[in-house]
């Protein structure tokens, strides 16, 4: 660990100050408290060289630090939690109730019986929660980049790929309370998957979140301004959501036309929805898992490359 192995000069180890009667920061602006009285002539000073040996524990501490910050920010922005919940609930309770009479869904895996439309779209709405969360987080990195806190992350000694992965994983973990709150409310409208499904959906959601987060991160590296979230909504979020199996089964899309079907099949979001759908019923869709995993890897690599100082982040920034 860095600080364990630090070469700390004697003068650094005890920055003392005498106790003062008033809280120091409330006092009038005088010079700051005196540092250690040991004087070291500049020529005797050797550069303070610390070997960077974080070890596994150092990586873990960095990861938990990044995750904790995401959760703290999430708690600060409580409205984000409610808006993230209201959106899918409107779809579930209002939209799906209306369409229930029009759209009957026949028996299809993983469902063992005829199901209501609410039951069908619930996994798609979970994926929608993740999609919005991931895109919002990716866009906040544009904000962070403008405000500079991304610079702090990128100038820390851990490998950049690890830092970005940690950031995406933290975003994925922040989405979990939203997902389970949604599933709890959905239970009251008869969306009641088996108990094993509630557990199995967790890793699926994390993986889907990583995939959508890395896609978002990749897209955000091309966005120069914060205002472009509207553009992301129109050109990324809506097409991804509507051209997938979130709202209609793929066979219905096939009936609608081969082009639409082809687009839906090629859409990574379709596979994310199917992975969540199957896992929510305690089953594993190997094809979806493999595809989501491969897409995650590909976009994660692209996202890390796009944050390379030579290629991404400050590429076109003037001094």
């Amino acid at each position: 660990m860095s600080s364990d192995s630090a070469t700390v000069p004697a003068s650094k180890q005890s920055p003392h100050a005498s106790k003062q009667s008033l809280p120091a920061s409330r006092q009038s602006p005088t010079a700051f408290q005196q540092a250690s009285p040991t004087f070291r002539p500049p020529s005797e000073v050797s550069p303070l060289i610390r070997q960077w040996q974080p070890g596994v524990i150092g990586y873990w501490r960095t990861f938990t630090g990044i995750t904790q910050r995401e959760f703290l920010r999430f708690i600060q922005q409580r409205t984000r939690f409610f808006s993230a919940l209201i959106r899918p609930l409107l779809w579930l309770i209002v939209f799906a109730a209306g369409f229930r009479a029009v759209l009957g869904v026949s028996i299809m895996p993983p469902y063992g019986t005829y199901i209501t439309y609410q039951v069908y779209i619930a996994p798609g709405l979970i994926a929608m929660i993740i999609l919005f969360n991931a895109m919002q987080s990716a866009l906040s990195m544009v904000y962070d980049r403008e405000m500079g806190s991304m610079k702090v992350l990128l100038t820390s000694p851990q490998p950049r790929s690890f830092l970005l992965f940690s950031k995406l994983m933290a975003t994925a973990l922040v989405a979990l309370p939203q997902i389970y709150a949604f599933l709890l409310i959905a239970w009251f409208v008869d969306v009641d998957p088996p108990w094993s499904g509630y557990l199995a959906v967790l890793p699926a959601c994390l993986l889907v979140s990583l995939m959508l987060g890395s896609i978002g991160l990749f897209i955000s590296s091309f966005i120069r301004q914060l205002e472009n979230f509207a553009g992301v909504m129109n050109f990324v979020i809506f097409p991804m959501f509507f051209l997938s199996s979130a709202l209609y089964p793929l066979w219905k899309m096939q009936e609608a036309g081969p082009v639409l079907y082809a687009i839906c099949t090629a859409n990574p979001f379709t596979h994310a929805v199917e992975l969540i759908r199957f896992s929510l019923y305690g089953e594993l869709d190997i094809t979806s898992l493999a595809l989501v995993f491969a897409i995650t890897l590909a976009f994660l690599t692209l996202a890390v490359l796009s944050f390379d100082p030579q290629k991404g982040i400050l590429r076109n920034k003037k001094r």
């Binding site: 600080s3 960095t62 990044i66 910050r69 920010r73 702090v152 851990q158």
Partner: peptide
Amino acid sequence: IVFQQSTLDPDLTVGQNLHYHASLHGF
């Protein structure tokens, strides 16, 4: 590094900001 623009998270406390930085350095 101290950048020209503030890079602290305004919604978090001083302690939370500093703990975050320490975690980036494996403390």
